[in-house]
Simulated assay, not measured.
Amino acid sequence: MATRKLTGEALAVELKSVTGHLFRDHARLRRALTHASARGSTGSDYERLEFLGDRVLGLVIADLLFNAYPDAAEGELSLRLNALVNAETLAEIAEEIGLPNLIHAGGEIRSMEGRKRVNLRADALESLIAALYLEGGIEAAQNFILRYWEPRSKALREARRDAKTALQEWGHQAAAATPIYAMESREGPDHDPVFTISVTIGEFEPGRGVGRSKREAEQAAATALLLREGVWEKKDVQ
């Protein structure tokens, strides 16, 4: 990650095309893209802005999903929101708009790989959102967020989700519990077995599924529970 040495004014011009806003407060913009490893004697970095940007992003995405899916249950909305505001999605968008090259960080930070690299990019993007909000209000922040997140929210509508993964994510939200799968029966000959599996999560009634393999039956059980609890709709199941 090679940081580009830009003046505050040049940085504002660089970001105008991707944010739709020409920043006037160059000091805040510089702070929004400064990691703690490079804050120097000023003591200014993006941590406080990151905190605010995370909340602004969450509000805008929640509003987007609330209106885009008027019949969706809270559990489904939570799953969709989590997919849109997780670090991987933010890092992907940061890369798309060329943000990594504009982050001011120490040499050891710029060379990070893996999860730490993803988090750095995600944090800087949240901080940029906060700077947008503070200078241009919710409208400026919302315009930027919708530009990059709304297409992704529509893509989620078409994506076939893995039922076991979806159930695990929802279970943590709804019951702070992990799904537990149990085989109830195995019937048929060895070359063509049929498995019946149940899944329980917290105090919710179990879901049951049947399949030619344990995995298929587990997916069916997870799907049944998600449908019954209103997390998924029938149209979500292909």
Rank of each mutant, 00 (worst) to 15 (best):
M1W: 10
K5A: 14
T7P: 05
V13L: 11
E14L: 08
L15T: 00
S17Q: 01
T19K: 03
L22A: 00
L22R: 03
F23A: 02
R24M: 04
H26S: 10
A27D: 10
L29W: 02
L29R: 03
R30Q: 15
R30C: 13
G40C: 05
G43P: 07
S44K: 14
E47M: 13
R48C: 08
R48A: 08
E50N: 07
F51Q: 15
F51V: 14
L52E: 05
G53N: 02
D54Y: 15
R55M: 06
G58Y: 10
L59C: 09
V60L: 06
D63C: 01
L65K: 06
A68G: 09
Y69F: 15
E74Y: 13
G75E: 11
E76V: 11
L77W: 06
S78D: 15
R80K: 14
L81E: 08
N82S: 14
A83L: 13
A87Y: 01
E88F: 08
A91K: 08
E92V: 12
I93C: 02
A94H: 07
A94E: 01
E96L: 15
E96K: 09
E96Y: 12
G98F: 08
L99R: 02
P100Y: 01
L102K: 06
I103K: 00
I103Y: 03
H104W: 01
G107Q: 00
E108Y: 07
I109F: 06
E113W: 06
R115G: 11
K116F: 12
R117I: 07
N119R: 13
N119L: 14
R121D: 10
A122Q: 07
D123S: 11
D123L: 04
D123A: 13
A124I: 05
I129A: 04
A130R: 13
A130D: 04
L132K: 07
I138D: 11
E139L: 09
E139H: 06
A140T: 00
A141G: 13
Q142G: 12
N143D: 12
R147A: 04
W149E: 00
E150R: 14
E150N: 13
S153E: 10
L156V: 11
R157K: 11
R157P: 03
R160T: 15
D162M: 10
D162R: 04
T165R: 14
T165S: 11
A166N: 05
A166L: 04
L167K: 03
Q168A: 11
E169C: 02
Q173D: 15
A175T: 12
A176I: 10
T178N: 13
I180Q: 10
I180M: 07
Y181G: 02
Y181A: 10
M183S: 10
R186E: 01
E187M: 06
G188V: 08
T196M: 04
T196Y: 12
I197S: 01
I197K: 01
V199R: 10
T200S: 03
T200M: 01
I201F: 09
G202L: 00
E203K: 13
E203P: 01
V210Q: 13
A220P: 05
A221C: 00
A224Y: 03
L226S: 09
E229K: 06
G230M: 00
V231H: 11
K235I: 14
D236E: 03
D236M: 08
